[in-house]
Design a protein around this nucleic acid. Structure first.
Length: 430
RNA sequence: GGAGAGGUGGCCGAGUGGUCGAAGGCGCAGCACUGGAAAUGCUGUAUAGGGGCAACUCUAUCGAGGGUUCGAAUCCCUCCCUCUCCGCCA
C-alpha cells in the first residue's frame, strides 16, 4: 500500500511513477477523499476531547458532593449525550470515507524504483547478465528432446492419472522423478542455509489478511484457490505466509536483516492461461518452490536485492544450468515490486530461456500493508521486504532433464546433486 | 466437537464504573557513586493517527468487533485465540 501522506500532499509523486508503469491515473478524487478523512478525524477528535472533559467534570462534581441525579449533573449529562450523538454521526461518515479510500488505495500497485527501466511490456525488459553455455544438439545428432518427452519416456511423471486424481495441470511424480524433486528441495534448502538463511516450513493454507498483506488481495482473488467455508486460501507462494509471519510486529534493528528460505508447495489457478504450456512441468496448479525472503532496513534493500538474486543464481550455477538475468521494465513489474530481476534458465530441448526465478524488492509496500516495523533509536520505521524464488523446483527439474539428456536415454545429473539424488544419472527404463 | 479457566505495557503482574495509558516488580537507557565494575540510589522508558518549525498537544488503543453509560481495562453481547480435561485423529 502507498503512503497516504503522499496522496494528501502531492499526488503527482504517485501518478508520475505509475505513468511509467503505463497506468494513467487521476488521483484528484482520491486526494479529496484522503483530505476529507483527515478533516473528519480532526473534527471528531476535538469533539471527543470535549466529551472527555465533560465526563471528567461529572466525576469531579460527584466526588465534590453533587447529587448524581441532581440538576447540576443532569445538564452535563445532556451535553455529553449531544456530543456522543455528534461523534457517532462523524464516525459513520469517517468510516464510509475511510472504506472508500482504502478500497481504492489497496488496488494501486507499488511505485517503480527510479532504477527500474521504463518500458511497456516484457519486450522492453533488459538483459543484464548471461551465465553458462547453452547446450546445442551435437552435429548430425537428432534434436534434443523437451523435458516432458524425456519424463514420459523415463516414466517419472504421470500426467493422465493426475487428471483422474485432480484436474489438468496437475502432475504425479514417480520413482526417480519423485526422488529428484525431493533431492532438489533438500539441495536448495541446504545451500541457502549455508548462506545465512533460516529454513521455514510454514502453513500453506493462509487467511485473507495474509493474502492482503503481501498484495495478492484484494485485486487478484481469481488467481488463488479458496476454501470457501473457512476464510482460508491455498498459498500461491511462500512469500505470503513468510510476510505474515512477522505481520504486526516491531522487530529489533539488530535482528535485521532477517533472511528466510521457505519450501512450500504453491497453488495457482492460472486463470487465463488456457492453451499455454499445457505439457510438462512448466505451468501447473500445484508446484514446489523454495522461496528466499528478506526483511531489512530501508537503506539496505538495494544491496539486499543484489544478494538475494545472487543467492538464487548460485543454485543455478551449482546445478550447471545456463541462465540469464533480466531486469524487468516498469511495464512488466509485479504489483508489489519496486524493482525485479527475473532469472531465466536455458531449456536445452525447447531451445529457449524460461523464467525460473523472480527476485523482487518491494520497498515498504508490503511492510505498510502488513504493519511490519523495526525499532530505529527512539522511534519505529517501516522496514523493506524482498522475495525471490530460489528456485521453482519443477522448472529446475525440467531444465535438468533437458540439459542432461544422453544418447542412451538416461539423464546425467550435475555433480552437486549426486549426494542428494544418490546416483549420477536418471537411468532409462529397460 | 463438548466442559471449564483465561487473554492487561518488552516480560511478570495489580486493577471489577470516575481524573487509568494503567500500581508494583523485572528488563532496558541515562545519571550519581567507583580506579573500573558489581551492588545501590535517582530519573526515564508503549503504539498508531492528527495538529505544530519545535517544545508540545489532541484522539484512539488493556485479544477483536459491537453495546450500555456523562464516563468502561472494569458491566452486557458476538467472535478470535491460549490453557486444562473429555472425545476424535496423523
Amino acid at each position: 500500500m502507498l503512503d497516504q501522506r503522499l496522496l494528501r500532499n502531492d499526488p503527482t509523486l504517485i501518478t508520475a511513477p505509475l505513468a511509467r508503469r503505463g497506468l494513467a491515473t487521476d488521483l484528484s478524487g482520491l486526494q479529496q477523499l484522503a483530505l476529507q478523512a483527515r478533516d473528519l478525524e480532526q473534527q471528531r477528535s476535538e469533539l471527543q476531547a470535549e466529551g472527555n472533559r465533560i465526563g471528567r467534570e461529572v466525576g469531579e462534581r460527584i466526588r465534590a458532593g453533587a447529587a448524581p441525579g441532581g440538576d447540576e449533573v443532569k445538564e452535563l449529562r445532556e451535553q455529553g449525550n449531544r456530543i456522543k450523538q455528534q461523534v457517532a454521526e462523524l464516525e459513520e461518515q469517517e468510516k464510509g470515507i475511510e472504506t472508500q479510500l482504502l478500497e481504492q488505495l489497496m488496488v494501486l500497485p507499488n511505485l517503480p524504483s527510479p532504477l527500474c527501466p521504463t518500458g511497456r511490456s516484457e519486450a522492453d525488459n533488459v538483459e543484464v547478465k548471461r551465465w553458462g553455455t547453452p547446450r546445442q544438439a551435437a552435429a548430425g545428432v537428432e534434436k534434443l528432446q523437451e523435458h516432458w518427452q524425456i519424463a514420459e519416456r523415463l516414466g517419472i511423471v504421470d500426467t493422465e492419472r493426475s487428471v483422474r486424481i485432480a484436474q489438468s495441470r496437475f502432475v504425479t511424480l514417480l520413482g526417480q522423478g519423485a526422488r529428484l524433486e525431493r533431492a532438489l528441495i533438500n539441495f536448495m534448502l541446504d545451500r541457502h542455509a549455508g548462506r545465512g538463511y533460516t529454513e521455514v516450513l510454514p502453513p500453506v493454507l493462509v487467511n485473507t489478511a495474509s493474502l492482503t498483506a503481501s498484495g495478492q488481495l484484494p485485486k487478484f482473488a481469481e488467481e488463488s484457490f479458496r476454501c470457501a467455508e473457512d476464510d482460508l486460501w491455498l498459498t500461491p507462494t511462500a512469500e505470503v505466509p513468510v510476510t505474515s509471519f512477522h505481520r504486526g510486529e516491531v522487530l529489533a534493528a539488530e535482528a535485521l536483516p532477517l533472511k528466510y528460505a521457505a519450501y512450500t508447495p504453491c497453488f495457482r489457478r492460472e486463470a487465463g492461461s488456457y492453451g499455454r504450456d499445457t505439457r510438462g512441468l512448466i505451468r501447473l496448479h500445484q508446484f514446489n518452490k523454495v522461496e528466499l525472503y528478506w526483511f531489512c532496513r530501508p537503506e539496505d534493500s538495494e544491496a539486499a536485492h543484489e544478494q538475494l538474486t545472487g543467492d538464487a543464481e548460485a543454485i543455478l550455477e551449482a546445478l550447471e544450468l545456463p541462465y540469464r538475468r533480466l531486469e524487468l521494465c516498469t511495464g512488466d513489474l509485479g504489483f508489489s515490486a519496486v524493482r525485479t530481476y527475473d532469472l531465466e534458465v536455458w531449456l536445452a530441448g525447447a531451445g529457449t530461456y524460461r523464467e525460473i526465478s523472480s527476485c523482487s524488492s518491494c520497498g515498504d509496500f508490503q511492510a505498510r500493508r502488513a504493519s511490519i516495523r523495526f525499532r530505529d533509536g527512539k522511534t519505529t520505521r517501516l522496514l523493506h521486504t524482498l522475495n525471490g524464488s530460489g528456485l521453482a523446483v519443477g522448472r529446475t527439474m525440467a531444465a535438468l532433464l533437458e540439459a542432461g539428456q544422453q544418447a542412451d536415454g538416461s539423464v546425467k545429473l550435475p555433480q552437486a546433486l549426486v549426494p542428494y539424488f544418490g546416483a549420477e544419472a536418471i537411468t532409462a527404463v529397460s
